[in-house]
Design a protein around this nucleic acid. Structure first.
Lengths: 341, 341
DNA sequence: CTGAAAGCGCTAACAG
DNA sequence: CTGTTAGCGCTTTCAG
């Protein structure tokens, strides 16, 4: 494995010139540059990142803290972040951190501090003020995705607006008897998501002058089995059955649809269902949904931190950016069936 | 950010002693060690990984090359690898590499070589001999998960045996008319998986003296919509309908079940279905399956590379290890319905 | 535009 | 058991 010295002597220049030629920093004549990169190529030379980091203080690494991987939302974020990072020449250091305190502290106290990363992207992390302080104290660019993090710029969709949009769609179709199935407070996502989506739902109902009570809302796990379970329970009794359900996530909505099918309830004839996400399976189930693009949110966060890295002094205008959403209409919604009798 | 020098002077010892005390390498008296770690703690000192890597040549980083993230099998592997790595004090550098040549070469030629990783774990990568050579040429421990990689130790389940097990289960129940739904050759996983599972299927049929022809096998995408599509097509015509289907992955099996339900075909009364994976959704669909644990495969690969790192000279006995599988029986399989008439 | 020299912060002999 | 010393491989002034 050849070093900069080898390249220098093969090219007939000094180490300094090789460094300048290869890194692009500083003036090098065109022909010298050519000679150098030729020599580097022939030797298969590649800079030692440790040596280079040692002197520059930059690692070209971005740490990503994410609570889980094997779930569409999180996986998509990770894919988006990864792509964006690789594109820009950075490496991605993955920290899959669950909610257990020890694991978290291990990452916060130990891994992240070892001068291994230039910046940090935190995904839907509900962190304590102390942890935030620690992160910020590193003096490194940080961006969050998902929940708002006090004192850290974050990107997410506008959960309230998305929920309102979904609810309004049902309202516009003529539904009056709508139930919202949201997420469990201490499961999966940070709870802001759940409360905000509920808020948007209630706002839309209120604006339309539709009354609601505690039966208008149900919580369950944010996955297909969670939706299925709640669907069975909610749709089992024909007298209590709403004409439409707004699920806070597509997976939940799909679970509801599966439950409805098993109960012989036709979607959308007897029941309209709408979700949020545009999950890959949603198309197959004809699910109407408010699309969010976690991968783009990931890219956005990457842009932020890299910009801060490359233009020192720059910082995001606002503490928070909203990623776009849009309504994707499919066959799971329709006007309520006119009452017979 | 204080350096080793600061700790040394606060503790009243030399830099070398600090290094020894904190890294655990070399002899240090108990009391000195205490003094040193106390000082380090008070200063919030943490080694500079670049400096340390520069001299030791070790980065405490393991690179993971994986073709996709947002799919149960791959996500589970990644979770398993991540957990194992963090446990052992290593960081994980993620390279999400699709099949496009440019992306791959970028990783192989550039990222991996920058002395950034001590070892590499390659997940279901079908790499060219040249790429293998490049990887091996790095002189770093490598392990593969999934497809066998020529010249690289790998871990995977025994696909042939797993498929045989699934098929034998159906056979034992009395099924004679079984169709295998496998994966598209140029989709998703490397094609060895598909051909091996087909092989196991055919072996079991042959051993049982059951004839098969080209209609015994169908390929589709390894996901729920893929299974659904093929299910609709295969089950649409009552005269061609088999009594059982062995899907090469649970997601495909679930798609088949959904298709069957829509066609009014009862599972398992009219059709038995079995898959491979034990996907989280399988329970909900009552799917009988051959369980594989991608997370454990990930841990196994981590063990291998770390062992090589920590005991130089050690190498896996065999070029390949089989991860365990087991049959998880649920309600989607039953004896074929006795012929009427 | 290029070269010489001085480290970046740590570890690994080697003596003591 | 501990200190001294010499780099690891690069980048960056600072002169030319």
């Amino acid at each position: 494995m050849s070093g900069i010295e080898d390249v220098a002597s093969l090219a007939g220049v000094s180490k300094a010139t090789v460094s300048r030629a290869l890194s692009g920093r500083g003036y090098v004549s065109v022909e010298t540059r050519a000679k150098v990169s030729d020599a580097a190529h022939r030797l298969g030379y590649v800079v030692s990142s440790s040596a280079s980091s040692l002197v520059t203080g930059r690692t070209n690494n971005v740490g990503v803290i994410i609570p889980r991987i094997n779930q569409w939302f999180f996986g998509s974020i990770l894919e988006g972040v990864e792509r964006a990072l690789l594109d820009r020449g950075y490496d991605l250091m993955l920290y899959n951190v669950s909610k257990t305190v020890e694991e978290r502290s291990k990452v916060f106290e130990y891994f992240l501090v070892r001068k291994r990363v230039d910046a940090v992207i935190a995904v839907t992390l509900e962190i304590t003020p102390a942890e935030t302080e620690r992160l910020v104290g590193l003096g490194k660019p940080i961006a969050g995705i998902g929940g708002p993090l006090e004192g850290i710029p974050t990107v997410s969709i506008d959960d309230v607006a998305a929920a309102r949009l979904a609810t309004e769609h049902l309202l516009l179709l003529g539904h009056r008897d709508i139930v919202h199935v949201g997420g469990d407070v201490d499961e999966q996502m940070d709870f802001h998501v759940h409360s905000k989506r509920l808020k948007g739902f209630l706002e839309a109902l209120t604006a339309a002058g539709i009354p609601h009570d505690e039966n208008s809302y149900l919580a369950t796990r944010f996955d297909i089995p969670g939706g299925y379970r709640v669907g069975k329970q909610l749709l089992g009794d024909p007298r209590r059955r709403p004409t439409a359900i707004f699920a806070a996530a597509d997976e939940v909505a799909i679970g509801v649809i599966l439950a409805a099918r098993e109960l012989g309830i036709s979607v959308p004839d007897d029941l309209s269902v709408i979700g949020i996400d545009n999950h890959p399976l949603s198309d197959m189930f004809g699910l109407t949904t408010v699309e969010q693009r976690p991968d783009l949110q990931g890219e956005h966060a990457v842009d932020w931190v890299i910009r801060q890295l490359e233009q020192p002094g720059w910082s995001p205008d606002a503490g928070h950016a909203f990623a776009p959403t849009r309504l994707v209409m499919r066959s799971s919604t329709a006007p309520p069936r006119p009452r017979t009798g």
